[in-house]
């Protein structure tokens, strides 16, 4: 599996309230949530994002509420991967459980700038910044989580196990 896209860059502590504000939580439709993704931090995001694009942020990405609507909105907006220095733990497990690839990599999070073209190889955990011509090694998932991601989420993983 690979990702290839243009980077949207954010800072520390991007919380779930700015990823998808509560005023839209009366919906759980991914397509509708996607239209408000990142609205309170970056009004331009939904206008500019293309399928395959990548979000890069600093520490504690996804802190705050447990709303799965946050990774769902990001995934439905077309984002192929989020790279951050660290993730808040509920966001981390939600992303894995719904099959949104995320990678922790402090160096990449620091160096990569908005607008860079970045390629990611999920099998090796390698991140390539094609604009800067640099590369980084992201943290690989433990085997158990890889199984969930391969099954494209926890529900399929459990279904497969029961089959």
């Amino acid at each position: 599996m690979k990702a290839d896209g243009k980077v949207f860059k954010y800072g520390d502590n991007v919380d779930t309230d700015v990823i998808i504000p509560a005023r839209y939580l009366n919906s759980s439709d991914p397509a509708e949530l996607a239209t408000h993704c990142m609205e309170d931090i970056d009004k331009e995001f939904v206008k500019k994002v293309n399928k395959g694009d990548i979000i890069v942020a600093n520490k504690n990405f996804g802190c705050g509420s447990s709303r799965e609507h946050a990774p769902i909105a990001i995934k439905a907006a077309g984002v192929s991967c989020v790279i951050a220095e660290t993730f808040a733990r509920i966001f981390y497990r939600n992303a894995i459980n719904i099959g949104l690839p995320i990678i922790e990599c402090p160096e990449a999070a620091k160096d990569i700038d908005a607008g860079d073209r970045v390629e990611i190889d999920f099998d090796s955990g390698m991140i390539y910044d094609r604009t800067k011509e640099t590369e980084y090694k992201g943290q690989a998932f433990p085997e158990f989580m890889q199984k969930i991601i391969k099954a494209e989420g926890l529900i399929n993983y459990i279904n497969n196990k029961n089959a």
Binding site: R67, E68, I90, N94, N97, L154
Partner: peptide, 18 residues
């Protein structure tokens, strides 16, 4: 501890969580 909705679904069905 807080989890997301998918964990909740799996928990309701299996009584377990990772």
């Amino acid at each position: 501890t807080g989890v997301g909705s998918t964990d909740m679904a799996a928990g309701m069905a299996t009584g377990k969580a990772w």
